[in-house]
């Protein structure tokens, strides 16, 4: 299972990076490959390539604000959640994403 995602919070200081870390942590536990692009106070980092997006089984938007360059994700299966939910329960977010990818 390949997952890509975007994390972005309002201030772009803490939750963007906590959500990214938690998604990576729980994706690893579920044996998923994951790459997260952070859109925070330092701008876009770890930017996803179009090829990585195209290859992904599912996309996670863990965001409290608008996603930059959202048109890259046209026609992808997207799970959208707030950053706080991902910080609180990253495991549930990854499991929901897997379900979405499998069409369950």
């Amino acid at each position: 299972m390949k997952i890509v995602g975007i994390t972005a919070c309002i201030a772009g200081i803490a939750h963007t990076y906590m959500a990214a870390a938690n998604l990576k942590k729980f994706a690893k536990k579920e044996n998923c490959e994951i790459k997260i692009e952070t859109q925070g106070a330092m701008g876009i980092e770890n930017e996803l390539t179009q090829a990585e997006i195209d290859e992904a089984d599912v996309v996670i938007f863990a965001v409290d604000t608008t996603v930059q360059n959202e048109d890259r994700f046209n026609e992808k299966k997207i799970l959208e959640v707030g950053t706080s939910k991902v910080v609180k329960d990253g495991k549930a977010t990854i499991q929901d994403a897997i379900k979405l990818a499998k069409g369950e």
Binding site: I13, A14, H15, T16, Y17, M18, A20, A21, N22, K25, T38, G40, A41, M42, G43, V87, G90
Partner: peptide
């Protein structure tokens, strides 16, 4: 501050808090 090392420090710390 935009993209400087202090912000980077806070981002690193934020990530660590999930550990």
């Amino acid at each position: 501050d935009k993209g400087n090392e202090h912000l980077k420090m806070l981002a690193t710390l934020s990530g660590e808090l999930m550990d």
